[in-house]
């Protein structure tokens, strides 16, 4: 509906306006995280259920979004991925951009991009119809979710506390690292939810 001001397709849009908007569901802290099953960029299917017993990080990403570029440009997201996958955490980067929108690529191109930006997630998942993004209420790129080994959501929100497309993420307080460190060492997560910031997910 964003291009609603374009006069040429006005009549069509008027018809579209009659249709109810599909709302987001929202994942709730302390409740089981919504189940999913998505293909990765290498053709394997990844499900949340098979991660049982592991800590899981979901990272909604769009390589062209300035907020994502800030994280990857300074090597911050890659470092987090390396650090925590090294500790046995499953790190899943998810692209929910719809076909034709910014951040939607074929699997081969995704692999190139992940290699170019030196990313180290466990897998990169493709969610072009946005179903999984909607079930979690993923709003921005980046939007981060942390799930404990029992499948319970323990963190959702921003990557860090510096909501700007500029600056060095190293200077900010990283909420995901804090949640994982606390969670892995058996402590309750202090900051379990924050307002995510970034570009909108291109549903």
């Amino acid at each position: 509906m964003k291009r609603i001001r374009s006069g040429a397709s006005a009549a069509l849009l008027a018809a579209l306006a009659l249709m109810p908007r599909v709302a987001l569901a929202e994942a709730v802290i302390g409740k089981p995280a919504p189940a999913f099953s998505l293909p990765d960029t290498n053709g394997h299917t990844v499900t949340l259920a098979e991660q049982q017993g592991k800590w899981v990080v979901l990272e909604w990403t769009n390589p062209e979004c300035p907020f994502v570029k800030k994280q990857y440009g300074k090597g911050n997201m890659q470092k987090l991925q390396e650090t925590y996958t090294g500790k046995g955490v499953t790190w899943l980067s998810i692209g929910s951009s719809a076909p034709g929108k910014e951040g939607n690529y074929p699997p081969a191109r995704w692999n190139e991009i992940q290699k170019e930006r030196n990313a180290h997630p466990t897998a990169t998942l493709l969610d072009p119809d946005g179903a999984v993004g909607r079930s979690y209420g993923a709003k921005t790129t980046p939007h981060m979710f942390v799930i404990d080994p029992t499948g319970t959501l323990v963190y959702q929100g921003a990557i860090d506390d510096h909501s700007s497309p500029f600056g060095d993420p190293a200077d900010a307080k990283n909420h995901v690292a804090a949640a994982l460190d606390e969670g892995i060492s058996g402590k309750p997560v202090t900051t379990a939810s924050t307002k995510p910031y970034g570009c909108s997910v291109k549903y």
């Binding site: 001001r5 006005a10 008027a14």
Partner: peptide
């Protein structure tokens, strides 16, 4: 009439 009305409705929905 539909085209004019549709354009008007859409433009107003867009905030004009």
């Amino acid at each position: 009439f539909w085209v004019l009305a549709g354009a008007l409705i859409a433009l107003r929905a867009g905030g004009a």
